[in-house]
């Protein structure tokens, strides 16, 4: 074995192939690559990292690396790429940790929002824009309640959960809140671009099949004001 082709294929086996047992110092390389990934998980997805044992992670990561090799050169993207694979596929530990992909995505979103690029928002006068440093997660597991002591899938209430994260413009801190489907609809419509208050509320009413009467509009305006006060919605 000396050609570049053979050697690169060999390195792949050393790093990612669960059916191959590397010898000697090659095992050191397998451990380094694996522990490097665990370190990234520890800093980006500490909750998920803490629930699964090292052995569990080895199984999950080996499957992910084999089936959907990470492409991003940006280290913090690795847990996101893994979360998308785990969300979309039945994986080796699906039965024990069916929420794993959703939890990892949710944990990643905080980092994604923390590092979101700084984009200047513009729009017609008086229109509303969504703070561009945000993320809207939709989950079937209560990922925001999962912890090392609370992760038994049989005891977690399945439902539709909407979680919104945003970076406060002044403090640059990332905040999160659980929102209802109506507020999620508000954010989805604003994600398409700036809208004035009335058309926004009307579009949401159409989607949610609500009569846009006076009461709805008053409540909607109060909601939007609250969102503006929190630095979630900007008035142009």
């Amino acid at each position: 074995m000396s050609s570049l082709k053979e050697i690169e294929a060999f390195w792949e086996k050393v790093c990612f192939d669960p059916n191959y047992q590397p010898e000697g110092r090659y095992q050191t390389y397998r451990e380094l690559v694996f522990s490097g990934m665990l370190d990234v998980l520890q800093s980006i997805c500490p909750v998920a990292r803490g629930i699964l044992s090292d052995g569990d992670w080895q199984q999950v990561l080996q499957e992910f690396l084999r089936e959907a090799p990470p492409r991003s050169v940006v280290i913090r993207q690795l847990p996101f790429e893994a979360s998308q694979y785990l969300k979309d596929h039945d994986h080796v530990l699906s039965e024990t940790y069916p929420w794993l992909g959703e939890l990892m995505e949710y944990e990643y979103l905080e980092v994604g929002v923390r590092f979101a690029p700084e984009v200047q928002v513009t729009g017609p006068k008086d229109s509303l824009s969504l703070n561009p440093a945000h993320a809207l997660g939709a989950y079937t597991w209560p990922v925001h309640f999962i912890s090392e002591t609370r992760h038994d899938p049989d005891k977690l209430p399945r439902a539709e959960y909407f979680l919104f994260l945003w970076r406060e413009p002044e403090s640059l801190e990332v905040k999160f809140m659980e929102i209802n489907p109506l507020v999620a609809a508000v954010f989805r419509h604003l994600q398409n671009g700036p809208l004035n208050e009335i058309s926004l509320l009307q579009q949401v009413a159409d989607e949610m099949e609500i009569e846009p009467g006076t009461e709805y509009l008053e409540e909607g305006k109060a909601l939007l004001k609250g969102l503006a006060d929190k630095g979630i919605v900007f008035k142009n």
Partner: peptide
């Protein structure tokens, strides 16, 4: 190498 067969990682593997 900092990727093998297109899979990117963050360790540095030696060349022959």
């Amino acid at each position: 190498y900092s990727s093998v067969m297109g899979a990117q990682f963050h360790d540095l593997l030696p060349l022959p």
